[in-house]
Design a protein around this nucleic acid. Structure first.
Lengths: 197, 197
DNA sequence: AATATTTGCTAACATCCGTTAGTATATTAT
DNA sequence: ATAATATACTAACGGATGTTAGCAAATATT
């Protein structure tokens, strides 16, 4: 009889969530079937339901796991006493690190949250909006302090977040450029701009 | 008997493709059903098949329509005699204009192309790869000319494309900032960077 | 060793999906 | 007006999907 293998400090549910993240990333939430997931876990589809309530619960776990980590980091950055530019750089660093260390979950949380069901959906959207507002507030602080150019802060936030979220293509060909180089490049471009002055 | 209303110079198929783009954007390709589409067109599901071959064909039409427009613009920009920075700005302008004028199609082409079936899938991926290479070549030209900083050109391209592709949130609240302001902001940030020097 | 609990399996369900067949009706061409 | 074509409808198909019920085996607890 097949059995879900667990590592130390991890439940069978966590194994399933992790495999689900990989599958949802590859195929999309809707296109990934519970039978696909079962195969990737090494078990029959029905057996999954001894550990989880529903397919949607898997998406909850993934999305809110990611969102909570970002919120936590935002608390930390906000309460620090660095300059606005430094705070922005801290956040960019964190986003890239999350993208590298929890690629599947972050990707799914970014692209598949639409398939959450209420009340999780509205909850998630609210959290996301909050996060962006707090990010924008940091940029506005930088503008007041004359560290940052006079730009539309919410737009800048969207640009930053989507620029970072789009490293998926890089992730596929890992050897081409490593994470540290990538981070340097991103911060150079986003903070310093393309133009050589 | 219901009948698909057409405007001047547009076939019924084009109406369906256009409605499909809106639906695929809203729900995702897999989650959008042909019965949903039929309802939005104002007709029974089976009737759609008098005009199209399959659901996937709708995705082809959308994705390659968008891809062709970008390729065409790239031809035009490449053959011009502007500086590299100017070429980059031309392309950014075009991307934003496309995002504003053909929002649903561009969005779907960006996020749902995974659900294309071969040989369309590989065809699309190749075209996309080509486009990015040509974009990167312009940036590398700018680096050689000392117009642009020494950065990793493919990374810069990904950043630019994803930054622009992420204006979806802006599009939802149209009144907040208009297209021209947005474009200015984006070019300022992406070309000039955040930092005030 | 005996019992209780966890975990997995097979089988099946109701529902939704894309699509086709066959037919009726509206429009266009003759 | 008649014929030909384009368009829409109803009905139904085969298959995939998420999930449940009921039972068997493995593991943990006593």
């Amino acid at each position: 009889m097949a059995r879900i293998k667990i590592e130390k400090n991890s439940s069978r549910k966590e194994v399933i969530v992790s495999k689900a993240a990989a599958l949802f990333r590859e195929k999309g939430f809707k296109a990934a079937s519970m039978r696909d997931l079962a195969e990737s876990v090494g078990v029959e589809a029905a057996s999954l339901y001894n550990h989880i309530k529903s397919k949607t619960e898997l998406l909850h776990e993934i999305c809110f796991g990611v969102a909570n980590r970002f919120m936590h980091k935002m608390d930390e950055v906000e309460s620090g006493s660095n300059s606005a530019i430094e705070k922005v750089e801290q956040l960019i660093h964190f986003h890239i690190a999350e993208m590298v260390n929890h690629y599947e979950e972050v990707y799914v949380s970014d692209r598949e949250w639409k398939h959450l069901a209420d009340p999780y959906l509205s909850n998630f959207q609210t959290q996301r909006r909050m996060y962006r507002k707090r990010f924008a507030a940091i940029i506005e602080e930088g503008i007041r302090n004359k560290e940052i150019k006079k730009i539309d802060a919410p737009t800048a936030v969207l640009i930053l977040l989507h620029a970072i979220g789009g490293i998926e293509s890089w992730h596929r060909s890992t050897q081409k450029i490593n994470a540290s180089n990538l981070t340097d490049n991103m911060i150079t471009i986003l903070v310093g701009g393309l133009e050589l002055k």
